[in-house]
Design a protein around this nucleic acid. Structure first.
Lengths: 116, 116
DNA sequence: CGAGATCATTTCGGTTCCGTATCATTTTAT
DNA sequence: ATAAAATGATACGGAACCGAAATGATCTCG
């Protein structure tokens, strides 16, 4: 299965998803929060605050706040690293996994309906 | 050319783009602003405030403020509708077109590099 | 002509987020 | 043992955004 998009298709896909997120998203996540969430769920652990801040080229408080907000929604969880108690490890949750799964379904559905 | 994504691919694509936007985006647009921008550039005019608010299921001030912000960046422009001076028509700009084009390139590049 | 409808903007109080700087805890190294 | 480094959280002032309601301008239609 080869993935090949033309410019208009690519933008239309992105637009449709953005519009769907705005219309229906109960959590109203920002782009940064979304980047954090998907990194946690798609990349192999461990995920530390400092590591994610470096990856996204943002300051640490940005990550802390994003985790505060999404933690409040139940989308992620945090635990101290017992090996090095300075670190905090970001953990996945059932609710977060469900949310991410639904987002994947949305992308697939929109990609399938693209004009050719 | 058929577009077919598997769940992990779809989410990885979305994650890569979100991360890129956070890392490199000079304008730091919100999801709502992005939805407005892409609607203006990908859907046929005219685009009115009320129309876009209805499409995105948000209130009119949300659209007005998004246009204020993006107008400040030079990404969109506004003009009164001469036919009905109550309406405001959202117009494209050269700078906005360039920005959207670059976004399309990003989506294409990320889609091409997906793990299969 | 005038009352009401329509459209975009502005105002309001409140919330969230930002970056910088600082703090508390823990680890590392001398 | 103790000073320095590393890590995440917090404080702070400022900026952006929110929804609801009020405002101003324009149009519609009797």
């Amino acid at each position: 299965m080869q993935i090949e998009l033309k410019p208009f298709q690519a933008l239309t896909l992105w637009k449709e998803i953005a519009v769907s997120e705005v219309r229906d998203d109960a959590h109203d996540l920002t782009m940064r929060q979304l980047a954090v969430l998907l990194t946690v769920y798609l990349e192999p652990p461990p995920h530390t605050i400092r590591g994610m801040a470096a990856k996204l080229k943002v300051t640490k408080p940005v990550i802390t706040r994003a985790l505060d907000t999404m933690g409040g929604y139940g989308l992620v969880d945090r635990h101290r690293d017992e090996k090095d108690k300075r670190n905090v490890l970001v953990k996945r949750t059932v609710k977060g996994a469900l949310y991410v799964e639904k987002l994947g379904d949305l992308v697939i559905a929109k990609a399938r309906g693209l004009p050719l």
